[in-house]
């Protein structure tokens, strides 16, 4: 039986007390005991005028340090790191930013078994977004980016919008521009 999925609607401006406060907020994607290189990721969301969006919600889903997802459909999930549940969610602050704490994921198999470069899967929700936008966060200077089977699908001049940069002080920064010159690549999933 084929059923048509329920339509998406905007999360609106007043979701915070339901989705991003108290126990619903999870800035920590991988617990303190998780294996792998720990990192902090600052996300910044800007609208078509370059103005920070203070009422956006970001969700992140990622694999553990060995590239295994904590999910039954990953054939390797039985040996996935129990300290890395892989999910985080935060609302942006007045300056359009929010900060996650996690570990750098390993490489996950992609189309035709080709390994993907380490990446975080990101979904963005906000007032004015009738459906969530999907993008990916890759890490600058990772040699595996050169052979990633998804990055090659993106026009060369736009690939840099998917790559987080390491700032002074050891924090990664990922900017999401909804429109404009540096418009972030969003995926049709």
């Amino acid at each position: 039986m084929r059923m048509v999925p329920t339509p998406s609607q905007t999360v609106g401006p007043f979701f915070a007390f339901g989705l991003t406060q108290g126990k619903a907020c999870s800035p920590c994607i991988a617990g303190p005991d998780a294996k792998g290189e720990r990192l902090r990721l600052l996300c910044c969301v800007l609208d078509g005028d370059g103005v920070p969006i203070p009422d956006a919600m970001i969700e992140i889903w990622q694999a553990d340090a060995d590239g295994k997802y904590h999910h039954p459909d990953d054939p390797k999930s039985a040996t996935a790191d129990p300290a890395c549940l892989g999910f985080g969610r935060m609302g942006t602050a007045e300056d359009g930013t929010c900060m996650f704490e996690t570990i750098k994921p390993g490489r996950v198999p992609g189309p035709a078994g080709v390994l993907q470069s380490p990446h975080l899967n990101l979904a963005l929700f906000a007032r004015g977004l009738l459906k969530q936008l999907y993008t990916r966060v890759y890490f600058a200077n990772d040699p595996a980016n050169q052979e990633d089977p998804i990055l090659v699908l993106v026009p060369k001049e736009r690939r840099s919008t998917l790559i987080a940069q390491l700032e002074n002080g050891g924090r990664w920064r990922f900017e999401i521009n909804l429109q404009g010159e540096r418009e972030t690549v969003f995926f049709d999933v």
């Binding site: 889903w61 459909d73 189309p111 004015g128 699908l153 999933v189």
Partner: peptide, 16 residues
């Protein structure tokens, strides 16, 4: 001012 203006890139589904 919030909807992307460029076309979305088709993503084949992976474990991610």
């Amino acid at each position: 001012r919030r909807a992307p203006s460029k076309p979305l890139i088709f993503l084949p589904h992976t474990l991610s």
